[in-house]
């Protein structure tokens, strides 16, 4: 047997299937998404606004409250240009993923950035959500197809350095 015929590796698939039932905060925020609205919640202890809300403050460990309208515009706090394909992601390479600090929220939200040149994406860049047609909205984050630059002036790092 020649060396080139040797089996040098095996593929071991892993798979878990969940029936995911979101908690009350996430239920509210997902229903609002189906209406095209972003609803966050506030920590009564530190006043941080969370989007998407999980129901608790990660910092204080207390239940979050209220319904806070969050804008579908925000500021890029960090980003990555992805050049590696994945089987279940059918985006053209390269694509840009980013943490976006939505206006009205204190915690960055994960999103895609499109409609821009890759090497022009930068920390502090202003972006806005591009939504699916309203007829296709459902209770899920897929309603937002991606974010694109707004053309507004960049936000200085000093203004969001506590939110990255």
């Amino acid at each position: 047997m020649s060396d080139s015929d040797r089996i040098e590796s095996i593929v071991t698939p892993t798979r878990t299937e969940y029936d995911y039932t979101p908690g009350p905060s996430a239920q509210r925020s997902l229903r609002a998404l189906a209406e095209g609205r972003l609803i966050g919640e506030t920590c009564p202890s530190c006043n941080q606004v969370y989007y998407p809300p999980s129901g608790t403050c990660a910092r204080c460990g207390v239940a979050t409250e209220g319904e806070v309208e969050i804008a579908d515009k925000g500021t890029v706090t960090t980003y990555a240009i992805v050049r590696v394909p994945s089987d279940n992601i059918d985006l053209e390479l390269p694509y840009c993923t980013a943490h976006i600090l939505l206006d009205g929220s204190d915690i960055p939200f994960f999103g895609l950035i499109q409609e821009c040149v890759w090497d022009e994406v930068r920390i502090g860049m202003r972006v806005e959500a591009v939504w699916l047609p309203e007829s296709e909205w459902g209770p899920g984050a897929e309603n937002i197809k991606y974010f694109r630059p707004t053309g507004e002036p960049d936000v200085p790092f000093e203004q969001f350095k506590e939110h990255i």
Binding site: V11, T12, P13, T14, Y18, Q27, R31, P139
Partner: peptide
């Protein structure tokens, strides 16, 4: 809330290639 609870399937899947 009068609406039914939202629930959805969530699949975590990954193929590892293991060097032998």
């Amino acid at each position: 809330m009068a609406d039914e609870l939202l629930s959805a399937p969530h699949v975590l899947e990954y193929d590892y290639r293991r060097s032998l």
